[in-house]
Nucleic acid binder design. Sequence first.
DNA 1: TATGAATGAGTATTCATTCAT
DNA 2: TATGAATGAATACTCATTCAT
Lengths: 221, 221, 221, 221
Amino acid sequence: MPLSPKSPGRAARRQSVGDHKRELILGAARRVFESEGLDGASLRAIAAEAGYTPAALYFHFDSKEAIYAEMLDISLGRLADAVLAAADAEAEPAGRLRAAALAFFAFYAENPRDLDLGFYLLRGGLKPKGLGRARDERLNAALAVALAPIGAGAEALGATPEAARLLVVDVFAHAVGLLLLTHTGRIRMFEASAPDLMRRYLDERVRGLLAGGAGLPDGRG
Amino acid sequence: MPLSPKSPGRAARRQSVGDHKRELILGAARRVFESEGLDGASLRAIAAEAGYTPAALYFHFDSKEAIYAEMLDISLGRLADAVLAAADAEAEPAGRLRAAALAFFAFYAENPRDLDLGFYLLRGGLKPKGLGRARDERLNAALAVALAPIGAGAEALGATPEAARLLVVDVFAHAVGLLLLTHTGRIRMFEASAPDLMRRYLDERVRGLLAGGAGLPDGRG
Amino acid sequence: MPLSPKSPGRAARRQSVGDHKRELILGAARRVFESEGLDGASLRAIAAEAGYTPAALYFHFDSKEAIYAEMLDISLGRLADAVLAAADAEAEPAGRLRAAALAFFAFYAENPRDLDLGFYLLRGGLKPKGLGRARDERLNAALAVALAPIGAGAEALGATPEAARLLVVDVFAHAVGLLLLTHTGRIRMFEASAPDLMRRYLDERVRGLLAGGAGLPDGRG
Amino acid sequence: MPLSPKSPGRAARRQSVGDHKRELILGAARRVFESEGLDGASLRAIAAEAGYTPAALYFHFDSKEAIYAEMLDISLGRLADAVLAAADAEAEPAGRLRAAALAFFAFYAENPRDLDLGFYLLRGGLKPKGLGRARDERLNAALAVALAPIGAGAEALGATPEAARLLVVDVFAHAVGLLLLTHTGRIRMFEASAPDLMRRYLDERVRGLLAGGAGLPDGRG
DNA sequence: TATGAATGAGTATTCATTCAT
DNA sequence: TATGAATGAATACTCATTCAT
């Protein structure tokens, strides 16, 4: 029950309405981006899809790039959710590691536009030198969260922190490489299956870990 | 009677003059692209750098995308040259394999714009559908040439053709992944060195081949 | 019964509160205008500086132009204050005349934005027709006050009312012309000092008055 | 008779066609500017008036400001023509001086938009700090040409070069001031006639010159 | 083969203002 | 009295492409 005509819920309601509109716009942006790609995702197009005037978007976002950046935030959040959920469904460290890495791979395999978005924004896309220190680090942090289960799994299997860190980069890179080969259609020229390759790569690395570090690039030899 | 005004040599000369101009334009395109990136490499800018009017370029190329596509042709040719030269400098199969793969990696590490170009064209960049069947296959063939020494090395070390083929994809993917991590600056967040990682990955794969297939994802187990 | 909830003081208080807010807004407008110029003094910017939402300003002013117009009112008030104070510091008519005119000149030399404001509003700036009869006359009156000491000085020195009136226009015009030459940087091309020129002009006119009207354009000659 | 199918007249004809189009555009710009003022003289409006697409103007001019700047060039050229013609119609130095100054005054009295243009461009109007050194000096030079007959007349009447220079500034400033009072409608509040005042001011200055420097602000008398 | 001229569609962003709440 | 949200019109400028000459 409201305490006064101007109840404390008013500001909150307004806030949530505002958030909702932001989400509507981001949803529209995502749809446009999904179907037209980054080049087609102009501010006009996004506004039109959202049922707004271009000018209206500026009430909710500072610029087109700000919309992109927020889309990337969300994308990385989803990625992290998917990875963590997959890892948590497994009990054993090896299983967790594999599940996390495969979830990472699957996320981008199923959402190729998110891959585009990431590459666009993480590179020259944004005007003022990348995205500004702050945002860059936010994104790094989000990425680190999504990759954490892989490193944790490796350590649980006996890898040193440094070895685990390098394994994460390796897995990250291998996944990204395979995703891009898929994304650009080049994988076809090798008649290979990217998911299969990803699985095999992981199996090998996990086997290496279980064998006491053998299989790690800088293993005992 | 000897060479008439419209001698058979005339067409040839004309042809070669035309080729020369194409090369001038492509050189200009490369320079612009190198210094301004894909966004800055507008037709106007390329024409200006080449000392032409924008309209003039249309006598030599069908469209801006056609210029890009031809740049990619050339880029892949250079890549192949670099890879083959590196492989030929080694005598042993294992050395040839490593040298070829590292040359591939180095080529793109040193020419990041070529990486951009490849990704742009191999994906959404081109309007109708990719680049057209013919061109797509030309590019695949050029890529195949550049990667061939890697597969050949693997087979020389005893891998079956299929195993060799998969190794090529793996190495390709790993290299591409590491290159992108570098290109987007993400490698920094792991405090890792992409060239080192590439070398380690290759060492491991070569060791696997030498050990009789162990180390290959689908190895003896 | 004493002051009821809706006491007579309430309206007054409200009025004065409203006036205070107007002043806050006008102060903000002045600051923005001072540092950003007319182009930068958008309603949004003024509102932001004042700690308001743009929409809120419409409770206090009819339009952006109304804010400008009121700024001009204030500006002319300050001008009059400066001129009168300078004149009052002198005892002799000639001194008063000179002091007033120089104060006028100095005011705009030191506050060039006020000059901009005046010209903007007094000309095409305002949409309907100038500023509306009423406002136009208010501004004329304010200007007349600021210029009065000059005319009064002239009459005290023996000029007829008509001669005094013409002298005022002349001095006004000369000052304005010199101010604009300064303001646009053109004075530099003559390697001249506007304040010096203003002083000389005044000296000459005063001398003319003292000599019995000689020096006035339509003097006895 | 043309020397060849590609006659030497071709380039010249093209050039003159190009110049003609520029003039058409400048004419359109002038008309728009005349009827809508500087604010209304948008690139779109100019293009529309000229029967062009906005983009087409960029073939002929680098920017909107470049169009403005060229309008000002032309305006100053006309001013100089008018002033020189008026001066040349007189034989005696005093007559030349007066005629030149009155022609200057009349030019702007009759073409108030040219006054706007000058003030706009000579001040903050142009983006890169004024107009760039070069253009600024071109305009100064044009202005100097238009004002030269006044200084020349003064020297012919015996003024030292410095005295002549100062007289030019004075006359310039007085004219500008009176023009602005007229332009902003303020002259009305004094029930005065700007042309009359200009004439009287000149008479007085000329009289001063003839009297051997008396009348000059710093004259010895 | 090359140019000058032109187009039409597109870009992100800013503005003063209005209105329901 | 004030806000958040929204509008519609406007801004200068860029682009790849076409076409008559």
